[in-house]
């Protein structure tokens, strides 16, 4: 509960009250969850967020803020790391999914692309993509069609389809991981840090594909990113996590213009760039908590 009291929601100044937005369906709702690792380490201290159907929502924050933990809590991959959701609820398409296995959740259409890509290194790129279709029961023809669809989005990995995934470049691996998730025909993808360790052009290429997929295939995205600038360009809404709490949320546009976000996450203050060494941590806590 404590988390909510400290939270600020920004209203975009220029936009009128969102009458249309009110009828937008929510595909994923996380309500005030707490996550504990090893029974003692409290990592998420009441995180709530919502993803509208067909939306791209960014989950922002520094290292260790709890982005990955939030995504893993949703996709139920925490058990493998001895983590546990101890409070709150996670609702996907109107149903509580907290006790489902990752397998059942993927069947329902919610899949995670893990941080660091995690391609199956000894399988070829195409085999990697096919593992994504493991949960599907609609036959080889449909799987083959989707494979072609994915190659049309990622022509770069089509050329590398028979290469061992472990030997492909970082960008190709990220595309492979994203394509692998798409093979399960998801309604929603939890995308963890797609920009990690990639050149800016490749990051942009991947984000453009994400936007394409969102527009053409209607896949909703929850995007955990450290690259705030990039994420806010492509997302429509954003949440900022700090120390396991959501401290700020709002329309992407409003977040981009917010002074604190500018200063602490975009590195711009009072119109000019500023070194991180000069930024005092307590200052921002005070400002937001005030």
């Amino acid at each position: 509960m404590a988390g909510n009291t400290e939270r600020t929601t920004l209203e975009a100044a220029a936009t009128p009250p969102p009458a249309v937005l009110a009828v937008v369906e929510t595909i994923l709702a996380v309500n005030n969850i707490e996550v504990v690792y090893n029974h003692v380490i409290l990592v998420l201290k009441g995180v709530s967020l919502e993803v509208p159907k067909g939306g791209i929502v960014a989950l922002l924050g520094a290292n260790g803020a709890g982005k990955t933990t939030t995504l893993k809590a949703i996709s139920n991959l925490l058990h493998a790391e001895r983590g546990e959701v101890t409070k709150g609820s996670i609702v996907f398409e109107g149903a509580e999914v907290h006790s489902l296995t990752p397998n059942e959740l993927v069947r329902r259409g919610c899949i995670q692309v893990m941080e660091g890509r995690r391609c199956f290194a000894h399988l070829t790129v195409e085999e990697n993509l096919l593992t994504g279709a493991f949960t599907r029961k609609d036959g080889n023809a449909a799987v083959k069609r989707d494979l072609d669809m994915i190659y049309s989005y990622f022509p770069r990995i089509k050329e590398r389809r028979n290469a061992t995934a472990g030997y492909t470049s970082g960008g190709e691996q990220q595309m492979c991981a994203l394509g692998r998730a798409l093979m399960s025909r998801p309604k929603m993808i939890l995308l963890d840090e797609p920009s990690m360790g990639l050149a800016p052009q490749i990051v942009e290429e991947i984000f453009n594909i994400v936007r394409d997929l969102n527009a053409k295939e209607g896949v909703s995205f929850l995007l955990a990113e450290q690259n705030t600038n990039m994420a806010l360009k492509y997302a429509s809404y954003g949440y900022i996590l700090e120390n396991g709490r959501v401290v700020l949320d709002g329309e992407a546009k409003a977040l981009r213009e917010n002074e604190d976000v500018k200063e602490f996450y975009l590195g711009i203050a009072e119109g000019k760039r500023k070194s991180f060494h000069d930024v005092k941590h307590y200052k921002r806590r005070k400002r937001w908590l005030a």
């Binding site: 397998n103 096919l130 493991f134």
Partner: peptide
């Protein structure tokens, strides 16, 4: 086979295999 491929995937990376829905 589909299951054989899943087996090799699990051999490579347990968690990633789980994340794509391989039980």
């Amino acid at each position: 086979t589909r299951v054989g491929r899943a087996l090799r995937a699990v051999a490579d990376d347990h968690q990633a295999a789980q994340s794509v829905g391989i039980p």
